[in-house]
């Protein structure tokens, strides 16, 4: 299946901004994150088709996954 992956803010560094990528059916958000070498503790918002999801969310063909880093500063 094809999933559009969008990376935001510091996640773009050394990776990409947006890419269409092929994954096996029922790949989870966690598997995509691991494949991109993004440390889990840096993850903030994870969105599939503009809605916030959890790491164990399974992706479907045609989904758009967006990943934002965790921001905590004040």
């Amino acid at each position: 299946m094809n999933v559009t992956v969008k990376l935001f803010a510091s996640f773009q560094k050394g990776r990409f901004t947006i890419e269409q990528r092929a994954y096996p059916a029922a790949t989870t958000v966690r598997e995509v994150v691991t494949g991109l070498a993004i440390p889990e503790q840096e993850l903030g918002i994870m969105m599939v088709n503009s809605r916030h999801v959890k790491l164990d969310q399974e992706l479907a063909d045609g989904d758009t996954l967006a990943l934002f880093p965790l921001l905590g500063g004040g």
């Binding site: 935001f8 803010a9 510091s10 903030g44 918002i45 934002f68 880093p69 921001l71 905590g72 500063g73 004040g74």
Partner: peptide
């Protein structure tokens, strides 16, 4: 709620 890091905020 507000939070910041570098060029980024929410």
């Amino acid at each position: 709620h507000g939070a910041i890091a570098g060029w980024y905020g929410q």
